[in-house]
Simulated assay, not measured.
Amino acid sequence: MNPHDESVGERLGALFREVHHRVEASESARISQAEMAARLGVSQRAYVDYIRGKGPAGARVALDLLAMLDDAEAIAILRRWREGKQINERHADGTTDR
Score class of each variant (00 low, 15 high):
N2L: 06
N2K: 08
P3E: 11
H4G: 01
D5S: 12
D5Y: 02
D5E: 15
D5Q: 13
E6Y: 01
E6S: 04
E6R: 07
G9H: 07
G9A: 04
R11Y: 00
R11P: 05
L12G: 03
G13W: 08
G13K: 01
A14V: 00
A14Y: 02
L15K: 10
L15C: 07
L15A: 14
F16C: 07
R17A: 09
E18V: 00
V19I: 13
H20T: 01
H20K: 07
H20D: 01
H21Y: 08
R22C: 03
R22V: 02
E24Q: 15
A25K: 11
S26M: 05
S26I: 02
E27A: 10
S28G: 10
S28Y: 06
R30K: 08
R30T: 10
I31F: 04
I31W: 03
I31P: 12
I31V: 12
Q33N: 13
Q33I: 10
A34W: 01
A37N: 08
A38K: 08
R39C: 05
R39V: 03
L40S: 08
L40G: 05
G41F: 10
G41L: 11
G41A: 09
S43V: 05
S43L: 07
Q44F: 05
A46D: 05
Y47F: 14
D49T: 05
D49V: 00
Y50N: 02
Y50K: 12
Y50C: 06
R52T: 00
K54S: 10
G55F: 03
P56D: 00
A57C: 00
G58F: 00
G58T: 12
A62P: 03
A62F: 12
D64M: 02
L65N: 02
L66C: 04
A67P: 11
L69I: 03
D71Y: 05
D71H: 11
A72M: 06
A72E: 15
A72I: 06
E73Y: 02
A74K: 06
I75H: 11
I75K: 12
A76T: 12
A76R: 15
A76L: 03
A76G: 15
L78C: 15
L78M: 14
L78D: 01
R79I: 07
R80V: 10
W81Q: 15
W81S: 14
R82Y: 09
E83I: 12
E83H: 05
G84L: 10
K85S: 13
I87W: 03
N88G: 12
N88D: 15
N88M: 10
E89S: 08
R90H: 09
H91V: 10
H91G: 01
H91Y: 15
D93K: 14
D93Y: 04
G94A: 06
G94F: 01
D97C: 09
R98I: 07
